[in-house]
Design a protein around this nucleic acid. Structure first.
Lengths: 114, 114
DNA sequence: TTGACATATTCCTATATAGGAATATAATAC
DNA sequence: GTATTATATTCCTATATAGGAATATGTCAA
């Protein structure tokens, strides 16, 4: 079997460093492809291709305006990543008296079989 | 060029759902390979292979005890993921009066070229 | 309708899996 | 030594990129 496709979920989509760059450069703004191209200094097809993957997993939304296509980050799709990684954060960042909470969260996670 | 290797960084390592399961099932405990095998119900080589990738990116540490190998999650290696995804969390989770902070963080991130 | 602009797609290739099956290595006990 | 237990590795294959280069599609303007 091959690797999980990049378009399978947000985890796989943002595993590619360039796609994280795209999201970071977009931030909260709605940008056209060319604006992203300018900010990143990449060639246009490369940007379009990465946007395609991001769009397929819902990480960006597209809106057509004349001959432009405006893209915008759909941050909520990053939530599964945030939710998955947050419990671990306690392990390096907080005092030991919250370890029990960490364990509880792990337990729930285990039940959900994820 | 091919896809970024799974062993390149934590982002790529945990893109594989099975490896997230491994980390979740380990939690805060130090477990032998067989203990992980039992908890997940997978075959042993499969577990070993995934542990290998996780170890190569530092997400787990290994300790040899007799013929066993004890593995433990090294949560800190997940920090880059946490740090990257956290600013976006504000976009869906908090009131709009903190949007300026979000933008600041995005800006810093952009300067670090990540 | 022709040209310019904005963006997407296709074709190509080197590369890297993930999983199954079989086997190798290592440590311990007898 | 030999068997047993614990774990890792090798061999195999189908599959999916990511990037470069070239080209296609779509839209507007004169």
């Amino acid at each position: 079997m091959a690797r999980t496709p990049t378009t399978h979920d947000p985890f796989n989509a943002v595993a590619e460093p360039k796609r994280r760059q795209v999201l970071a450069v977009m931030g909260t703004q709605e940008l056209s492809v060319n604006e992203i191209v300018e900010r990143l200094g990449w060639n246009q097809p490369m940007v379009s291709k990465h946007l395609r993957v991001l769009k397929q997993v819902g990480l960006v939304s597209e809106r057509r305006v004349g001959r432009q296509r405006m893209y915008q980050v759909n941050a909520e799709k990053l939530r599964p990543i945030f939710d998955w990684v947050t419990p671990f954060e306690k392990l390096w960042n907080e005092r030991f008296d919250r370890l029990d909470e960490v364990l509880e969260e792990m337990q729930k996670r285990r039940k959900n079989n994820e």
